[in-house]
Design a protein around this nucleic acid. Structure first.
Lengths: 244, 244
DNA sequence: TTGCTCATCTGGTATAGACCAGTTTTTCAG
DNA sequence: CTGAAAAACTGGTCTATACCAGATGAGCAA
């Protein structure tokens, strides 16, 4: 007889908490970058436990509506950056054009050997020297991606000495007269794991988007291979196609 | 003095369990669609609790290495489908070409009115009649996406009476002589929530990839708008660009 | 063989704590 | 006022347990 009560309330608690917060975000009560109440406060105010509150928060994180900052709290995600990987606009141009503030940080430049994986993807000879550039990029002060860029020093002599905190494509165009006319892009959602997760100050397993791009010049010659690891909530990819 | 022990073991338990399973998958010990040991067994064999075992499993799920089947267990993910949304190949062709078995299921066809959101995206008049088609698609028996397709009955008379379990694009080409020459594609990672999550038999919050595609004919006239909700571990998107 | 029941297995949801490691704020000595 | 130390707070990881609901398979009845 205890279960004679109406079974209408079949919605799990964590989904109610999720929807409660989602409404607050949707309505504009919680603008982007606002900090949410702490897990303990959320749990108490919904009369539940931290584990359940975290379930709700993880749901919103998976939807891209909130993000976490290590041991600082949960924050409302800003709008996604609209990003068209087929265009030759630089990250800086994109971000600025959408009213946001871009920043690029070079994490390291070194000369390394082409791995067998990279060789298979690019057609370069395994073991040949290649310039490896690592960068971290920010939008409005939040790190949103890290990337590995591979450039052929034989094709681009002296490339390792430039300032990589600015647009690489502009550099290629202006200093080397290179136009990137053929691109092969691959991308898929996956979790960020450790070298990248740490570089973005997120915990391992945070949802991400992996994008790589192989660029050649008009003669089909290798110019650049770029691997980007994005936080999954930061971008919306667009592609326009006009078939012949 | 208790902490005089070497602090080498700073790796959380759930990451060890994750790596243990990842190795087993990587090495081929656990081929695609194999069921993993149950959470209770995993917890016991790693001398920990179910909560921690679930953390490890969630990590692998986020990476796309395993998937869950509602209350049946955790399974090894098969390879991602390579999918090029700019090409005119049908889902059926893609999947077959990669040695997998496609299946398409029509969930419903109805005549509805163009919503303001759809109008803004497509340029159609708000309120005008439109054919709404819902389908679910499978790879090797696993449901991997649900989609909403909107077609203009004025442009495609009688469209609602065809068999949608086959390729829509072939139908458009063969019965209506329509070629889809302009496409605008948007996509971003997000969680699957309820109408879609339920249709795919996954729990709300499962990671997904949202893709939409607006197609026009050679004259720029609206033909189709398609919204796809994919399980995030099922595909790898590729795009080729040849700039002029 | 077919179809049903039922026990058993699975993951899904939830409670109630605990300690740790960073971050932020407060406090207080100088 | 300044700067360093301490306290208070945050999420991160973890234990131990409970009950529920859907999936599965064994066993049995027709």
């Amino acid at each position: 007889m205890a279960d004679a009560a109406p079974t209408a309330t079949r919605t799990p608690i964590y989904l109610k908490v999720r929807d409660y917060l989602a409404d607050d975000i949707q309505s504009g009560n919680l603008p982007p970058h606002t900090r949410l109440p702490s897990e303990r406060v959320l749990a108490e105010s919904h009369d539940t436990t931290r584990v359940t509150a975290r379930l709700a928060l993880s749901q919103l994180e998976a939807e891209g509506k909130i993000y976490r900052s290590n041991r600082r709290g949960w924050f409302v995600s800003p709008a996604r950056l609209v990003y068209n990987p087929t265009y030759d606009y630089s990250f800086t141009d994109y971000v600025s054009a959408q009213g946001r503030e871009p920043r690029t940080e070079t994490l390291g430049v070194d000369l390394t050997a082409v791995s067998s994986w990279l060789a298979a993807r690019t057609g370069l000879a395994p073991g040949q020297s290649i310039v490896h550039l690592r960068r971290r990029r920010y939008i409005d002060g939040r790190p949103v991606l890290v990337e590995n860029i591979y450039l052929d020093p034989a094709r681009l002599p002296g490339i390792e000495r430039f300032d990589f905190n600015r647009s690489l494509w502009k550099l290629l165009r202006e200093r080397y007269g290179v136009e990137l006319t053929q691109k092969q892009i691959q991308m898929y959602p996956t979790a960020l794991v450790d070298p990248q997760a740490e570089a973005l100050s997120v915990s391992a397993g945070t949802a991400g988007l992996y994008v790589n791009r192989l660029s050649r010049d008009g003669n089909g010659r290798f110019i650049e291979f770029d691997e980007e690891f994005w936080l999954h909530d930061t971008l919306c990819i667009t592609v326009d196609v006009n078939a012949s």
